[in-house]
Design a protein around this nucleic acid. Structure first.
Length: 644
RNA sequence: GCCGACGUAGCUCAGGGGUAGAGCAACUGAUUCGUAAUCAGUAGGUCCGCGGUUCAAAUCCGCGCGUCGGCACCA
């Protein structure tokens, strides 16, 4: 290579330029700028793309040295951690095959093929060996190999998964190989210059099974998860955050706050306790009012429906594995509804519908059963018996866009009322196998896109993931430890009206097919309440709190007055509890604070004599002395919630 | 459904072939107290279930069930 051939001018982020007589590496550039930078450098960004520090730059470019402590370097660092894990695994367990190991949002993982499972003790050994490999500070180098050489090499060392993978890399892509110590891996990079740069702020967290290439028909590999950070402080902060998140877990808070429970005899179902059910009713009634205002009509449809209807709708063919089937004494086969749509179509079909009836928005808090795989169950986030805040909007094609916009705005407003400002929205467009003409799909996708944009909801594309009958929007919320859950949805459906023969009489006097908009805001009441619990860590705002205030006495001399205060609170419609227990006020404050009751009215002799209350807010240090009527009026106003 | 871990009092957990343990909660009594734990006493168990090994199983083995963490699935 003739490195001196072409001069190279590099432009740094501050606009300064550096010229070199020929190709230059990031490491050389950093060294030219200063020894401090050379030491801190992790990778280099060249015209927007991250590259190894050792990669020669042979033409003019905008560049930036990325130091180890920058957010951009973190992903590279985590990817390195995955490689170090793989190297450790090969050293300790020569029989393992390494397959795939990327960085993740908070760390990394590596999938290994090995007959024997990794134990928690193995994890400790792997982690110790990783620390050694970092100590060794092995240089990480990149090479480009020919496809045949690479396949032959990986086959020769028994790495059949890697060999299989190389065979499927597109022909126009380079096969890049990274080496560190005796470890050789197929990888696109970029990587840090040496294992020492990784540092020691990492930790292996768990082992789990994972299918090769994410396909359940393939072999199951062992995935070792870890987390990695630029320094020990960040690592500690992350581990602490996980600990804190555990305390927000809806399953834990559900028990601690006496909201609900689940038990073996009803796997995947929820026993709602009085307090949990109070919360449910508040939320349901809130949404009911919102839907009333939006021109929905509410209905109730049967739980058990005859097989013939499910055959007509297509569920018997497409969804049967997930359905609970029941048989009556007269041998009829019925199924518990997994969805509400067919039932709503039956209501639509009663009587003749005119274009003047459209859009017809049929809503139901529909109780559904789906036989979900056992491994999918998760607290009340993923259950087998759940209630959808479901509705189907029957409309003309021309009404689709306006209805979609109205729905997005409603959803956004509802989410805001519950404290969810940043909702991830996924737009799933036409799948390869689909029903309906391209013209209809064009229209449907354009309508949905207009809706999500008009509602000013940022969204990401989810290409090819739409339902076979139409595109869909998914509204995703996060739980306490960052897992995503789909809640709201909006789907366009051109198929079901056809299959279940729904029609209306148009202006022209002819029969037409309506379009069905399938939509939910919470998705499932159970899931939404679970997310809500985690979002608020059980400390609900006053309008949602199952118990809004506790009236607690300091001495029994105040008991009679406390009863009067309690009666006044109840008369005002507040959800109050009376605590006359023979305990010190410290104890009562602690007890009700742990129960996350938003407000305490503390009553002693002074309050009883003056007709006042000492109002204390959850977590607050201050107390406020108020006239009784004033306190009740204030709390009542505050309890009204976003919907009056 | 698959891989792994786990299952002991209401909760959190200890114990690990031979009387079932602690703290908190519960109950009873004393205490009347000013904003996050008053003191004393009492009661509480099919050690997830079924089978096996053993003189003896909560403990060891097998099979189920459930939960947890992932993977797959999620209209």
């Amino acid at each position: 290579m003739n490195r001196a051939s072409t001069p190279v001018t590099l432009t740094l982020p501050d606009g300064k330029q550096r010229s070199f007589p020929g190709p230059v590496t990031g490491a050389e550039l950093a060294a030219a700028i200063g020894p401090g930078l050379a030491k801190a450098a992790a990778v280099i960004r060249v015209d927007g793309k991250l590259r190894d520090l050792s990669a020669p730059i042979d033409r003019d470019a905008d560049v930036a040295i990325i130091t180890r402590d920058s957010p951009e370097a973190l992903e590279v660092l985590r990817h390195d951690a995955a490689h170090v894990l793989a190297e450790a695994a090969k050293e300790l367990y020569p029989d393992v095959q390494v397959t795939f190991g990327p960085a993740t949002e908070s760390g990394f993982y590596y999938d290994f093929a090995r007959d024997e499972p990794f134990t928690p003790e193995d994890l400790a050994k792997l982690e110790a060996r990783m620390h050694e490999i970092v100590e060794r500070d092995e240089p990480i180098t990149r090479e480009v190999w020919s496809r045949d050489d690479a396949v032959a090499f990986f086959k020769s060392i028994g790495e059949t998964y890697k060999a299989e993978w190389i065979g499927e890399i597109p022909a126009d892509e380079e096969i890049s190989i990274y080496k560190q110590g005796r470890f050789v891996d197929l990888c696109t990079g970029p990587h840090l210059p040496s294992t020492g740069k990784l540092g020691q702020a990492f930790k292996l967290t768990k082992v789990a099974g994972a299918y090769w290439r994410g396909d359940a028909r393939n072999a199951q590999l062992q995935r070792v998860y870890g987390t990695a950070w630029a320094n020990a402080k960040d690592l500690d902060r992350y581990l602490l955050m996980l600990e804190e998140a555990e305390k927000r877990d809806h399953r834990r808070l559900g028990r601690e706050l006496d909201l609900f429970h689940q038990q073996e005899e009803a796997v995947g179902s929820v026993f709602w306790h009085p307090k949990g059910w109070t919360l449910w009713r508040i939320i349901e009634n809130y949404l009911r009012r919102r839907l009333d205002e939006e021109g929905y009509v509410e209905v109730r449809t049967p739980q058990l429906l005859d097989r013939s209807l499910w055959e007509a709708s297509g569920h018997w063919e497409k969804f049967r594995e997930n359905m609970f089937i029941a048989q009556s004494a007269d041998e009829r086969v019925l199924a518990l509804k997994p969805m509400n749509c067919p039932g709503h179509v039956q209501i639509f079909r009663q009587g003749l519908k005119s274009y003047r009836d459209l859009p017809l928005r049929i809503a139901e808090f529909g109780s559904c059963h789906r036989n979900e795989p056992s491994g999918a169950l998760h607290g009340i986030m993923r259950v087998r018996a759940f209630t959808q805040d479901d509705a189907h909007i029957f409309c003309t094609e021309d009404q689709v866009t306006a209805e979609s916009i109205a729905f997005c705005n409603l959803l956004r407003s509802v989410y805001r009322d519950f404290g969810f400002e940043d909702v991830a929205v996924k737009f799933s467009d036409r799948p390869a196998v689909r029903a309906g003409t391209d013209a209809i799909w064009d229209k449907a996708e354009a309508g949905l896109k207009a809706a999500v944009e008009a509602a000013r909801l940022p969204y990401t594309m989810n290409p090819g993931e739409g339902a076979f009958y139409g595109p869909k929007l998914e509204f995703v919320l996060r739980d306490a430890i960052g897992r995503d859950w789909q809640c709201g949805t909006l789907q366009l459906d051109f198929v079901l009206p056809e299959r279940l023969d729904a029609s209306y009489i148009g202006e022209d006097g002819q029969r037409h097919r309506p379009v069905m908009l399938h939509r939910a805001i919470f998705g499932s009441m159970e899931r939404f309440i679970a997310i809500l619990i985690e979002q608020h860590a059980g400390k609900f705002p006053l309008w949602l709190a199952p118990v809004q205030l506790v009236i607690a006495t300091i001495t029994s001399d105040a008991d009679d007055y406390a009863r009067r205060v309690f009666a006044a609170a109840e008369a005002a419609g507040l959800r109050a509890q009376l605590d006359l227990a023979n305990e010190k006020i410290n104890y009562k404050v602690r007890e009700h604070s742990l129960a996350k009751i938003p407000v305490m009215l503390v009553l002693g002799k002074r309050e009883a004599e003056n007709g006042t209350v000492a109002l204390r807010r959850l977590g607050g240090k201050e107390q406020e002395i108020l006239e009784l009527d004033d306190a009740i009026a204030r709390l009542t106003a505050e309890s009204a919630g976003p919907c009056g």
